[in-house]
Simulated scan of single mutants.
Amino acid sequence: MPEPLKKLLHEELVGDMADHVAAHAPAFDRERFVTLATDGLVALELMERSALIRDALLATLPGDFPKAASILKASLPAADTPGLSGWMLLPVNQFIAARGTDHFDLGLDLLKALTPHFTGEFGIRQFIHRDQQRALATISTWVGDPDQHERRLASEGTRPRLPWAMRLPQLVKDPAPILPILTALMDDPEDYVRRSVANSLNDIAKDHPDLVAAFIAGHIDGASAERRRLLKHASRTMLKKGHAQALANFGFDPATALTCELRLQNGEVAFGEGLDFEIRLTNSGETAHSLMIDYAIHHIKADGSLSPKVFKCKTLTLAPGQSHAIERRHAMRPITTRRYYPGEHRIAVLVNGAESASESFVLRMPSPDPGQCLFVRCT
């Protein structure tokens, strides 16, 4: 089993942070910082640990932000000299977010300086929330920066729904101000940056699918292979939901002359095993069809209702009169991301976003208590 994420921030790391800061601030109270930053640390989760270390920085660095910023910037790695880097900079992000917005340009500059050594995406959001227009005016200048990490920060830091970070409600409501940033980075030479652009567009599509579908339609003609991959990744939520324009952007038009059959090998599945099934597709029309095949498992919830989860399956082109069979096993393994209940579930085949066939199956749990639920994931 992998180590819990919370262990990325630990007592030894706190000691290393203290050493790096103390090397550039003779008046820094190293021992007090370590005491404050490790008091109860082991009982906390990752972001709680980061907040504890942030509070220790707030208590021990100068109250004057320009002085504190000068110390932190000097404490970053330089040439062959080690310094604050990696997960040490998560609480530094939080420190800058807490103290830096009253010194707007200096705070943004510090986040830009630290991002090659970790990322500034967590701290920058408070600046966007405080004064979106001013923050974006600065961030938009980073799209041409020679450093790929700083270019990525322009995209990742402005994502409306960045995981683990504060949401940006103004950009959730109206993402138009960040579209020029995403457009400028769409053909970035680094896949690392392009994937961030795709993730930001996917964030926006959760609230504004028509806007993103239209944006992609406007940028897909003549696109390079790299841009097409970016645009398709950006469309993943819309494609799973069968958004008509998103499907059409990639040539997945309604397959009106298609026959779809779904056959289950086992109508009952024991927890820990898998559902074996076959999908058979036949093009009975006179033209070829480009097909995106997904399937959805409709899980039973605690109240007995069904909730679908869509899984990617295959894309293919069927010539007129051609048939194609797909065999899959949908395995179920216990993890902590889904409560699973026994009883009748449903599997549905989605062809170009439209449900084309479905069957029911029964999940049997190993517990003698029919009301007991287990945590599992379907893969």
Rank of each mutant, 00 (worst) to 15 (best):
H233E: 09
H298K: 14
M238T: 01
L264Q: 08
A223N: 03
R227I: 04
H289P: 03
H208D: 15
E226N: 13
D207A: 08
N202T: 11
E261K: 11
E190S: 15
D210V: 12
G274F: 08
D188N: 11
G304L: 07
Q265P: 12
A270F: 13
T287N: 15
G251A: 08
L262G: 02
G274E: 13
M292S: 11
P320R: 05
H233P: 06
Q245E: 09
S307I: 07
R227V: 07
L262A: 08
E261C: 12
T287K: 15
Q245S: 15
H208Q: 09
R263H: 09
P175N: 02
I293S: 01
I279F: 07
A296Q: 04
A217H: 13
N283C: 10
R280Q: 13
L258P: 00
R280I: 08
L291C: 05
I181P: 00
N202G: 08
H219W: 06
S224I: 03
A296D: 03
S284E: 10
F215R: 01
D203G: 10
V197R: 00
L201R: 02
T315Q: 14
A214F: 08
L211S: 05
R194V: 01
L291F: 03
L262F: 07
M186Y: 00
L291Y: 02
E261I: 04
Q245Y: 05
S290A: 15
